[in-house]
Amino acid sequence: MAETLRFHYEVDGNNFTSAGAASVEVKRKLRQLGFDAETIRRVSIAMYEGEINMVVHARGGSADVYVDKDCITIILADRGPGIPDISLAMQEGYSTAPDNIRALGFGAGMGLPNMKRYTDEMKIETVLGKGTTVTIKVYTNGANKL
């Protein structure tokens, strides 16, 4: 494919109910583009956790998705509080989510570890008080219609 496809989404920080809608949309697009089920699942689960994190921890943000033949890149950017200790945040089970979020089924401290598990590359850039940008990449096996 000559050109990279690019999709942009705003993620509403005031609406837990709609969190994940962008990931659903990306999943649908990747299906249309003919990527294999495993690749689509990895991309959409990682993006979904990232979207939920922006809503729960950072009052929302934006998601930019770049689709190439061999690689899908997602940049999740927010202007939230930032992450004071990234290695701590990456630990399975570590969570600062409040009880009301746990009651909604999130806040098990598995989101960032899940994102790492399902992607080939993950980079977290964060500045306290300014925001966080998480970049994830999944390499495809080339089996798609692009």
């Binding site: 837990f16 699942r41 689960i45 956790e49 089924g105 999130f106 098990a108 598995m110 899940n114």
Partner: peptide
């Protein structure tokens, strides 16, 4: 806990839960 569900994939067809949202 939805993140626990998301952590352990391998073609699981059914989700059993008491959580409603």
């Amino acid at each position: 806990m939805m993140s626990d569900v998301l952590a352990f994939v391998k073609d699981q067809g059914v989700l059993i839960t008491g959580l409603v949202n």
